[in-house]
Nucleic acid binder design. Structure first.
Lengths: 140, 140
DNA sequence: AAATTAAACGCAACCAGCTTGCATTTTAAA
DNA sequence: TTTAAAATGCAAGCTGGTTGCGTTTAATTT
């Protein structure tokens, strides 16, 4: 499905900025932060627009978001054809290079909460050192 | 175990500020953010000192930390006698009042990561609406 | 194709969380 | 009591993220 189709299917205007951002997210296929996206774009994009664009894409279910241990949100486009809750998998965060990877294929476990509490969502971040950084580069 | 014993056991100086902060964390027994701690203290405490105090307590295994969906870290003292990985349980975050609760009694599941990656830790946040806020107060 | 209008964009300003550097104070041991 | 290391507190600064508002743009209507 093209970027234009994805946007029109969500009844969103296919603006230039949205197409650029969404294309990048689909191409990279791993959760990217605002700053990572900004630095990857060839043309400058206002940061407020980027925040709002990602927020919109999330609201319409085109991307899902997770945050790293740095508290920074990362956004990832997901296959609109695949069923199940978008982003319903653990995410791995490399503490050294900051890269995040979707651990698709594993579902988030069910959690029991005390009486009266309602669960709207969950987020599972596994952190450590990725294969590129390697355990030997680990400082401290 | 008293606050003084906890600190001396970790070979940490039992300063006034540390005793005050740690006492509060033990008393409240639920994960508190910097701002929550600040507002609960009767005497003013420099924010940098508070950050460093919590960091130190974490490093020495006296408290564990989790972050909410706001990216804000919350700190919780845990029973030093209990065995197992400190903080090795899911945390519930109320999106309405911001309160966080340790879901002790449930262990974090094992996660498979691709070859070459090493896991140093994990964090599981379940969010929704707590019993005090109630589903009916849910806005939006 | 031109006009229209609601949606989206971009700019300035702002806020919260968190960190760094450094001088001052305090703790605990000599 | 002295002393040296450790901890505190202050100023300043950084990043991520938000709000308000005037301008531009996309998509629809004429």
């Amino acid at each position: 499905m093209t970027v234009e189709e994805l946007l029109s299917k969500a009844k969103l205007r296919a603006t230039h900025q949205r197409k650029v951002v969404l294309s990048l997210l689909i191409e990279k296929a791993s959760p990217l932060s605002h700053s990572e996206i900004s630095s990857m774009l060839t043309e400058p994009l206002d940061k407020v627009t980027l925040y709002r664009t990602l927020q919109t894409l999330k609201t319409y279910g085109i991307v899902h978001q997770v945050q790293g241990l740095d508290g920074v949100w990362r956004f990832c486009a997901h296959d609109p054809e695949s069923k199940g809750c978008p982003g319903d998998h653990p995410h791995f965060l490399c503490l050294h290079c900051g890269k995040m990877i979707c651990l698709t294929g594993q579902r988030l476990p069910r959690v029991e909460v005390p009486e009266g509490m309602t669960v709207e969502g969950k987020q599972f971040v596994v952190y450590g050192c990725c294969s590129e950084c390697g355990p030997e580069t680990e400082e401290k």
